[in-house]
């Protein structure tokens, strides 16, 4: 990056700082302060001193660990599936124009505008027991599918569909950086589709993929509605588990501890995201 000295640099810096002041203040007040409060509140008890007992309990409780493990697992699998599904659509949309491409794009972005409660009920009606798919299969004398409703696959299918648009948009913006000329040049030299993808396209959109994965992880870690309505009773994902601990068990200390642990995982992915952004800025534009 080249710094250019500018006569208006001083004034520009001040107004720039003023512009970012509001979001920064909001961030400190609504995010960082509660996080600090939660963190301190689970470790320091006025009049009793420091105690990490709730953390020791969480990490020695097989049930809690199973829930954490499930959350990590669902998050990893769902993020990977979202990128895997969005990639071919993104590449298609990048290199094809016309009414069919526009139709595919609107279809792929549609889930963005559907609230997750509706996704859940639509899912139950379509993929659930004796749902539309089963009805169609029976009509052509095929056996019914084992329904993913209330099984571990249920929330994953719902979450993949729900998160597809954001992933697609992020990948599309990355693909904008791949020049048509370089792809055509590679093709002229006899490169096949797979080679073009791994040698030309992938290196250019690496940071977009990392950004997409980081965004997905942050959203998925706190997923609530779909795991609650479509998933099995146990193990629970951290979202429903925290809610249950807080309101059903009336146990704010352990609920906060779970939240702090969840936040720590998300913060780690936040760091990866910020690094990817920084790298993208430094790298060739």
């Amino acid at each position: 990056m080249v710094t250019v000295s500018h006569p208006r640099a001083e004034g520009g810096r001040l107004s720039g700082l003023l512009l970012v002041a509001l979001p920064v203040v909001l961030l400190i007040w609504l995010v960082l302060w509660p996080v600090l409060q939660a963190f301190v509140g689970t470790l320091y008890f006025p009049g009793k001193g420091f105690s990490a007992a709730s953390y020791v309990y969480f990490f020695s409780d097989a049930y809690s660990l199973r829930n954490l493990w499930l959350t990590l697992w669902v998050t990893a699998l769902t993020s990977a599936l979202r990128v895997a599904f969005a990639m071919p659509i993104a590449i298609y949309l990048r290199f094809r124009k016309g009414s069919i491409a526009a139709f595919v794009q609107s279809l792929a972005l549609f889930p963005m505008f559907v609230p997750s409660v509706l996704v859940a009920y639509a899912f139950i009606r379509v993929l659930g027991p004796n749902g539309i798919i089963d009805t169609l299969l029976v009509a052509v004398h095929l056996p019914k599918l084992p329904s993913p409703y209330l099984a571990p696959a249920g929330p994953i299918i719902g979450l993949v569909w729900e998160g597809l648009p954001l992933t697609l948009l992020l990948l599309l913006s990355g693909l904008g950086r791949v020049s048509t000329a370089s792809v055509e040049a590679a093709r002229d030299l006899g490169a096949k589709g797979w080679t073009i993808f791994t040698r030309i396209i992938l290196p250019r959109i690496q940071s977009s993929i990392i950004v997409a994965l980081a965004f997905n992880v942050l959203g998925l870690f706190s997923a609530f509605t779909l795991p609650y309505l479509l998933g099995p009773a146990s193990p629970e994902m951290m979202g429903p588990y925290m809610q249950r601990t807080f309101s059903d068990n009336a146990d704010p200390l352990n609920a906060t501890t779970q939240a702090v642990i969840t936040f720590a995982f998300c913060a780690a992915f936040g760091v990866i995201y910020v690094r990817a952004i920084a790298k993208g800025r430094k790298g060739p534009a």
């Binding site: 139950i124 659930g128 027991p129 329904s147 609650y228 309505l229 099995p232 009773a233």
Partner: peptide
């Protein structure tokens, strides 16, 4: 499997599941 609420159970009964 265990449903996530009173209505979800009614729905499974209604769907003949």
């Amino acid at each position: 499997s265990y449903t996530a609420g009173n209505t979800a159970s009614l729905q499974l009964l209604a769907q003949g599941a």
